[in-house]
C-alpha cells in the first residue's frame, strides 16, 4: 500500500507525518466558524440549500430499541421524505446498526429505493472496544448483508494514548475488508478527542490510511458536530486535497437538528473547501430529527405559512 506516498506504514513515518502538521488556532477557528454562522441564506438560495441538505442526510436510527418495522418505516421515509410531495429528493443514505442492514436493503429494493445506499455502523460501534478479529467480522457481516457504506469508529483510547500506529493499522485493515464494495467513513468521536489539534491529527491519520469520508461523531457523545470541529476537519480535507489531489468527504453527525444548523454547515463547506464538496458524494449530514425540520421549512417556503410537526411523519 502506498498511503499517497505520505507514510510507509511504519510507526516512525506516521509519527513524523503527524508531527509535521501545523497546529490549529483555537480562537481563530471558533471565530471563523461563528462569523460564517452569521451568513443569511434566503429565498431561492435557501430553497436550494434545503433540497441539497435533504440529499445529504444520512437518515439514521441507532437505538437499542430499533425494530425491523421501525427500520422499514425509516427506509420508506428515506426514499420519499414527504409522501404528499414527489418533488422532494431522496436522502443520501439510510444509516443503521449491522443486524438491520439486510432489513433495510431488502425493503429499499422492494419500494423502488435502489438508489438509496445503506450505511452500517461498524467495528463495535459506538465505543470501538473489541478485538480486531471482531471488528473485521463486524464489517464483513455488514458488507455481506448489502451495506454500501461502512461507518467505523476509531479506538479513541489508543489515539489518546499516542498509539497512532494502532489506529492507523485498524483503518487500513477495515479498508481492506471494504475493498471496492463499500465506502469507508471513519468516525473520530470528536467530543472525546478534546482538542482541535487532535481532530486535525486524526483527520490526516484517517485520510492517509484510506478513509473515503471522515465523520465527526457517533451521536452518542456530546459535544458532537460543532461548527468549529467541522471547520477544522474541512480545512484538513482541503489541505489533503492540495497535497494528494484526492477529495475526501466529510460527515458531521450529532446535534444538527434544524434547518438553520444544516445551512450553517453548508456555508462552512462552501467557504472552506468550495462548491465541489456541496454534493452528497463528498458531504453528508448524519441526523434523524433534522429531516422533519427541513421538510417543514420547505413547506413554509411553498405554502407561505409555518407548518407543524403534525404534518410530517414521526420518527
Amino acid at each position: 500500500m502506498s498511503f499517497y506516498g505520505l507514510v510507509d506504514g511504519s510507526d516512525a513515518s506516521l509519527k513524523s507525518y503527524l508531527n509535521n502538521l501545523s497546529g490549529v488556532d483555537q480562537v481563530g477557528a471558533e471565530a471563523r466558524a461563528a462569523m460564517l454562522a452569521t451568513r443569511s441564506i434566503k429565498t431561492s438560495s435557501k430553497r436550494w440549500a434545503i433540497d441539497t441538505a435533504i440529499t445529504m442526510v444520512d437518515l439514521t436510527t441507532l437505538e437499542g430499541a430499533d425494530t425491523p418495522g421501525k427500520v422499514k418505516a425509516l427506509c420508506t421515509k428515506a426514499v420519499r421524505p414527504d409522501p404528499t410531495d414527489s418533488s422532494v429528493p431522496s436522502v443520501g443514505a439510510v444509516c443503521v446498526y449491522n443486524d438491520m442492514v439486510s432489513v433495510a436493503r431488502t425493503h429499499l429494493d422492494l419500494i423502488g429505493g435502489q438508489h438509496v445506499p445503506v450505511a452500517a455502523v461498524s467495528t463495535a460501534f459506538p465505543s470501538g472496544r473489541a478485538s480486531m478479529a471482531v471488528k473485521i467480522q463486524d464489517t464483513q457481516d455488514a458488507i455481506d448483508a448489502g451495506a454500501a457504506e461502512i461507518d467505523m469508529v476509531i479506538d479513541r483510547g489508543a489515539f489518546l494514548a499516542g498509539r497512532y500506529i494502532d489506529v492507523f493499522n485498524e483503518i487500513v485493515q477495515i479498508k481492506q475488508v471494504c475493498g471496492d464494495k463499500a465506502h469507508l467513513k471513519v468516525i473520530f468521536e470528536t467530543g472525546e478527542l478534546v482538542t482541535y489539534d487532535n481532530v486535525r491529527k486524526a483527520s490526516f491519520l484517517a485520510m492517509a490510511a484510506g478513509a473515503d469520508f471522515i465523520k465527526t461523531s457517533t451521536g452518542k457523545v456530546a459535544p458532537a458536530a460543532t461548527p468549529p470541529v467541522v471547520l477544522v476537519m474541512l480545512e484538513a480535507v482541503r489541505d489533503f486535497y492540495e497535497m494528494t489531489n484526492t477529495r475526501i468527504g466529510v460527515k458531521p453527525a450529532g446535534g444538527i437538528r434544524n434547518t438553520k444548523d444544516a445551512i450553517k454547515q453548508l456555508v462552512l463547506v462552501n467557504e472552506t473547501v468550495g462548491p465541489d464538496w456541496l454534493n452528497p458524494k463528498l458531504f453528508r449530514i448524519g441526523a434523524s430529527a433534522l429531516l422533519n425540520d427541513l421538510l417543514m421549512q420547505r413547506m413554509k417556503m411553498d405554502e407561505g405559512y409555518y407548518s407543524s410537526p403534525q404534518y410530517v411523519t414521526m420518527d
Binding site: 405559512y305 409555518y306 407543524s308 410537526p309 404534518y311
Partner: peptide, 8 residues
C-alpha cells in the same frame, strides 16, 4: 396574520 396561518 402569522398567528392565524401558523399550522402549529
Amino acid at each position: 396574520p402569522w398567528m392565524a396561518s401558523h399550522m402549529d
